[in-house]
Design a protein around this nucleic acid. Structure first.
Length: 576
RNA sequence: UGGGGGAUCGUACAAUGGCAGUACGCCAGACUCUGAAUCUGGUUAUCAAGGUUCGAAUCCUUGUCCCCCAGCCA
């Protein structure tokens, strides 16, 4: 039971954290005060299965499932699958996996709009019987012409006044497959002169012969979003139907449809601003394009803002949920700084990642006064933030590798690390001093450094109290394991890649350095048994995880999740 | 140009007629066997102009700017 106790505490903490008010929770509080909806709170997360979920969906998921959790209500998972030409079970599967991974559960409340096709059809028949819907024979082009413009009202369809009997007959024959694709539609009779386009006799059904991922070829007519969504919400007893800002204009139509069916409940649609993030794109259209054009390796490319990409990159669901709790919910368009996401990530990883030592760009060090063949077993702390993570032994020997970046032949004043004649500490090991540089006589490249060590500093402490300005990570040359490490950076090189004001396309802003594959990296031997899902901090470098797709052939491949904050890099950049 | 929304530190979110606050970022310092983490301090904002009021980010008026809408997409 101890793990569930811990879970209880986490949940309690989470609830406290997200007890922060936002305008949607204010509305719900008010509804609860007035006993609206019989004091129920029931939300839903309604993705269309036409792409993979991204961090923007995570905001919506945390909002909807979070509200259900905090108000002791329910949240349904509903696939909005009314357009078979774009949807696929691959997406359904990935969406389930991603929502679950974030830590949310919908029990047996997994629904599909396609579950309601028959009911939706019957309600449409009812609307025809009410004289409030008609079958229209206009072509798509003609429909557009009749719709009018921003300033001019539309003109009624010439088929507006068909008899109820004829409409009933035509609609049933639409269903039966008597007419070709696109030849007829079912339209609601509302107001062609409405300043709101959505009310200009909107289309409810179109004829479309496409294989549906669940209903196959059972149907050749499919309901439109505006009609299907509100009725689906009502059928499920949703109380608060939360969606993004672009649907604000659709609310009158949402309400209109539900007003026609007295026996159905009437959920309240509430709109909030979708998430935008700096240095990335968030539209499914663009993400799909990146995938299809091979600009990334797939939906789960670790550079993608998709949940599957972030998972492969090493993001934790806790970090993502913490981020979603912090960004707040409002109605104004906004773009959240990627730095906040990375902060939430580091905050979580710092608590849980095991510390290890790995050298990305090895520089050989020979410790001349260290006995040949001797091996030291040194104690290293696995996680200073978590004593229960324990310690491990790290082997030390005469030849080691340090990071090339940790040595400079002619260092500037701000450089604390190793330099000729200078002494530094090797983490958990010894103080070493650089005595000479061994160079390739032809190229002048540094091949190795000759150092001496002070045996009295074993473990990293100096008995005489002398200080060093730097502590370096290292690996024993003969014990180290080779690995590949993928260094990831921002996918785009500008803060707002969607900005087309320079006449450029977002793809023009792809960051050419967003991935760097490092081969020949040397990692400490304890990492040889690393498994997918393990989280590590490579000390002084960043957080890394095993790449779930790249490590299958027995060789180790790590992904850099995020760097550590880095004062020195900042100083270097500032000097340039 | 019709309709629907929105404007608060660099960024995001609060303050719902009563001291404009929090987080991230940034800057400075302390500490440090990770130039990490942690800690301390600092930085900067109510779109504009009028009005109501003892008192306005909040209410009223006028204006400015930004976003969304003319798919048989969602």
């Amino acid at each position: 039971m101890s793990s569930s106790d811990a879970g209880l505490k986490d949940t309690a903490d989470k609830n406290t954290a997200s007890a922060v008010s936002n305008f949607i929770r204010d509305i719900i509080d008010e509804d609860l005060c007035t006993c609206k909806n019989g004091s129920r709170v029931h939300t839903r997360f309604p993705p269309e299965p036409n792409g993979y979920l991204h961090i923007g969906h995570a905001k919506s998921i945390c909002l909807n499932f979070g509200i259900a959790r905090d108000y002791k209500g329910l949240c349904n998972l509903r696939f909005d699958d009314t357009n078979p030409s774009k949807e696929d079970t691959e997406y359904v599967d990935s969406i389930r996996e991603d929502v679950r991974w974030l830590g949310f559960d919908w029990d047996d409340r997994e629904f599909f709009a396609s579950d309601y096709f028959e009911k939706l059809y019957q309600y449409a028949v009812e609307l025809i019987n009410l004289g409030k819907a008609f079958v229209c024979d206009l072509t798509p082009d003609q429909v557009r012409q009749h719709r009018g413009s921003l300033t001019e009202p539309g003109t009624p369809s010439p088929f507006y006044s068909r008899s109820i009997e004829e409409n009933l007959d035509l609609f049933s024959r639409m269903r039966a497959g008597d007419f070709p694709d696109g030849s007829r539609t079912l339209r609601a009779k509302i107001d062609m002169a409405s300043p709101n386009f959505n009310m200009r006799d909107p289309i409810m059904y179109r004829i479309l012969r496409a294989d549906h991922h669940r209903t196959g070829n059972l149907w050749c007519i499919y309901p439109m979003y505006d009609y299907a969504h509100c009725v689906s919400d009502a059928l499920e007893g949703i109380t608060h139907s939360i969606c993004t800002l672009e649907f604000e204009d659709h609310r009158p139509l949402y309400d209109w449809f539900l007003d026609q069916f007295a026996e159905l409940g009437h959920p309240q649609q509430i709109e909030f601003a979708r998430l935008n993030l700096t240095y990335t794109v968030m539209s499914k259209r663009r993400l799909l394009e990146l995938v299809q054009q091979g600009l990334v390796s797939g939906w789960d490319d670790p550079r993608m803002p998709t949940l599957s990409g972030m998972r492969r990159r090493g993001y934790t669901p806790e970090a993502i949920c913490s981020f979603c709790d912090r960004i707040g919910v409002a109605k104004r368009d906004s773009t959240v700084d990627m730095a906040l996401l990375e902060h939430c990530l580091r905050e979580d990883l710092n608590k849980r990642a095991r510390r290890v030592m790995a050298v990305l760009r090895p520089l050989r060090i020979i410790i001349d006064n260290y006995p040949e063949g001797q091996i030291d077993e040194l104690h290293a702390i696995n996680n200073p933030e978590d004593q229960s993570a324990g310690t491990r032994m790290v082997p030390f020997s005469r030849e080691i590798f340090i990071e090339q970046d940790d040595f400079m032949e002619n260092p500037p004043k701000e450089f604390f690390r190793l330099a000729p004649g200078r002494e530094v500490r090797l983490r958990y090991a010894y103080f070493i001093k650089c005595e000479s540089i061994e160079k390739d006589t032809a190229t002048g490249d540094i091949i190795a450094l000759h150092c001496t060590y002070d045996p009295a500093t074993r473990g990293g402490d100096s008995p005489d109290g002398r200080k060093v300005k730097a502590t370096l990570h290292w690996v024993s040359a003969s014990h180290a394991v080779e690995a590949q490490v993928n260094l990831y950076d921002k996918l785009f090189s500008v803060s707002d890649p969607s900005d087309t004001s320079e006449g450029k396309d977002y793809k023009d802003y792809l960051n050419p350095y967003s991935i760097e594959c490092m081969n020949g990296c040397r990692i400490e031997p304890s990492l040889a048994s690393a498994k997918p899902g393990d989280l590590y901090q490579f000390e002084r470098l960043g957080y890394f995880c095993i790449d779930s797709a790249g490590s299958s052939n027995g060789s180790l491949v790590f992904n850099r999740t995020v760097t550590l904050r880095d004062e020195w890099t900042k100083i270097k950049k500032g000097k340039k």
